[in-house]
Simulated scan of single mutants.
Amino acid sequence: MAFASKSSAGPMADINVTPLVDVMLVLLIIFMVTAPTLSYPIEIDLPQKSLNPPPQTKEPPEPIRLRIDASGQVYWNEAAQPIAALRGLMEAEVQRDPTNQPTLEIDTDPNADYGVLAKVLASAKNAGMVKIGFVQE
């Protein structure tokens, strides 16, 4: 038995396994809860390796420099533009050559409103622009 009697003269040599069982049960419950969440696949579109890259026959067009200042004013290649006109300008650039689009380089002031940037990015997505970059100083 696990209880020492008065007749035994030496120390008790049995190991108390109750804390070990408690820890193992807690770990079992944790693994049972977290295992189903690890089995959901996450779809990611990664670029695939190409053995024969397409030849670069066309020179890439000049990038479009779009700047957003602290007041929320948007500048398209240093010309002030209203936000509503951006989608039309972007669609015109995409329609010019859909396979060789210019890069949209967005430069924002650190104090600019995020809502303006969100509208610019939504306009670019809706216009079909695929080359979008952010300028960092």
Rank of each mutant, 00 (worst) to 15 (best):
L46S: 11
I42Q: 01
P36G: 08
S50Q: 14
F3S: 14
F31P: 02
G128M: 02
I44C: 13
M24E: 02
R67W: 05
W76N: 11
R96S: 11
A84P: 01
P82N: 15
N52L: 13
K125F: 01
D97Y: 07
G88L: 08
A79Q: 11
V26N: 03
N126P: 01
A2F: 05
I132A: 08
P19Q: 13
L20F: 13
Y40H: 15
L20C: 10
A2V: 07
D107C: 02
K125Y: 05
A35Q: 12
V116D: 11
E78L: 04
S7M: 06
M24S: 15
Y75W: 11
V26Q: 11
A80R: 12
P61D: 11
D109L: 00
K131P: 00
L121S: 02
T18V: 15
A84L: 04
D14R: 09
P53S: 10
I83D: 09
M32P: 00
N52E: 11
I68Q: 03
P102R: 15
K6L: 13
L25Y: 03
I64C: 05
N77I: 03
P82M: 11
T34S: 06
L20Q: 10
P53W: 09
A80L: 14
V135N: 07
L86H: 02
W76A: 10
T57W: 06
P36S: 08
L28A: 12
S8D: 09
Y40D: 07
G128V: 03
A13S: 14
R87E: 13
A112C: 02
V21S: 08
A9N: 15
V21T: 12
Q56Y: 01
P98E: 06
A85H: 11
M32F: 14
L51F: 14
Y75S: 12
V17W: 09
I132M: 06
I83S: 12
D69E: 02
